[in-house]
Design a binder for these strands. Structure first.
Lengths: 214, 214
DNA sequence: ATTCAGTTCAAACAGCTGTTTGAATTGGGA
DNA sequence: TCCCAATTCAAACAGCTGTTTGAACTGAAT
């Protein structure tokens, strides 16, 4: 494989990440991608054997980057107090509201997936048993009563992430007319504080007997 | 307007509600709808002047039914204790997990919209200043410190609904392999209890000074 | 210089989308 | 009975989608 090939591959992936994050997988056409990447129409099929293949690659990359990323790094989080760990996790979930770095784009992509799981994503999640949720489960566990069932902890973690992602997904809607929220760094910080406070106050009240179904 | 016209209108709306709830607006084609409704291709454009017009009609209907529905009926909720009101509201949000009645389909539709706000929905929400969220805000207010800013109460309400809708949207995903949740009435009851407990414990800890930005 | 796999490219493909057309049918009012 | 507007219908339309084609180009190895 020669150099220029690698080059256009990277161009495509970069453009794809950006567009998938912005509009989601289904609303992004291959023509959008090749235009943004300044690459030929057929390049995607040549290099990734199809739009699905490209998405698969992008998801894999995003997933790897995210799980090994600082915001949900298991070791670092364990060195923090549980309150700090939770705060950092929530903030990490909300940061995409600001559209900034690469990680934010990845989280944005997963937010779209959480809304409309695609065929590709379903397969992908099925082969990744080490779930993206495990970090969240570890964090909430530190607040839950010790006898809390694993299934209940999982649901709490899902709820926490849902609480964050609803803002990320609807960013534009809430910025609009009936709500007019000014979504800047201050807003994100305060929203982080809000969600964190509610969680800290609420999680210890989970009944350990909940959701102990097989 | 003669009788048969009204008849096919109803056939179309019924089929559309069902399909929009199941797959969302964008993933449902007009051919899907006319096939299910056993109606001619052009009927949608004749009666609703387009797919968007039909969706607009369906959203309007769903919205009216929902806001006046028992689950979020303002008066009834006020007659309950705040814990009971919250519990009922959460359960109402989670009920679509069971796919059952008409209301569940409507809530399902709004869950899709919350994920992927369509053009039609954006216009729709913009002209409905009496927001769907007001009921939720009223409920959470009863738990929040009295000096809590309106903006903060709104965010808490959004978070609460996000916490519920993440389960509704990802129903199929969580029923699948890595999670294998058996989503039956017992599960919904216990999840309702879980989310309600966390909220009851957490909401009083909201800092009244949060999110007081204009 | 020649070869040839790797890579790019413009063009076309088949399939789906929402919408429009114009003729056929319907059914109540004159 | 005739009329005529309202409604239904099969067919076609234009536009988008992801993918394929086959020729042109590239650049290192022979």
């Amino acid at each position: 494989m020669t150099r220029p090939a690698e080059h256009t591959r990277n161009l495509i992936i970069k453009a794809a990440v950006s567009l998938f994050a912005e509009k989601g997988f289904e609303r992004t056409s291959v023509r959008d991608i090749v235009t943004k990447a300044r690459v030929n129409q057929a390049a995607i099929n040549y290099h990734f054997k199809g739009k699905d293949g490209l998405y698969s690659e992008v998801l894999k990359m995003a997933f790897e980057r995210l799980t090994e990323s600082a915001g949900v790094d298991a070791e670092e989080l364990k060195s923090l107090s549980r309150e700090q760990a939770l705060q950092r996790f929530v903030h990490h979930q909300l940061r995409p509201l600001l559209f900034k770095d690469e990680m934010s784009r990845y989280i944005h992509m997963f937010a779209w997936e959480s809304a409309h799981p695609s065929k590709v994503f379903r397969k992908f999640i099925a082969t990744n048993t080490t779930s993206y949720l495990s970090a969240a489960v570890d964090i909430v566990r530190r607040f839950l009563p010790p006898n809390t069932h694993e299934r209940a902890a999982l649901c709490v973690a899902i709820g926490l992430m849902g609480q964050c992602s609803v803002f990320v997904r609807n960013r534009d809607l809430f910025a609009q007319d009936p709500f007019r929220m000014a979504i800047d760094e201050r807003f994100v910080d305060e929203l982080t504080d809000l969600i964190t406070r509610v969680a800290i106050g609420g999680l210890p009240h989970v009944n350990g007997a909940n959701l102990n179904t097989a």
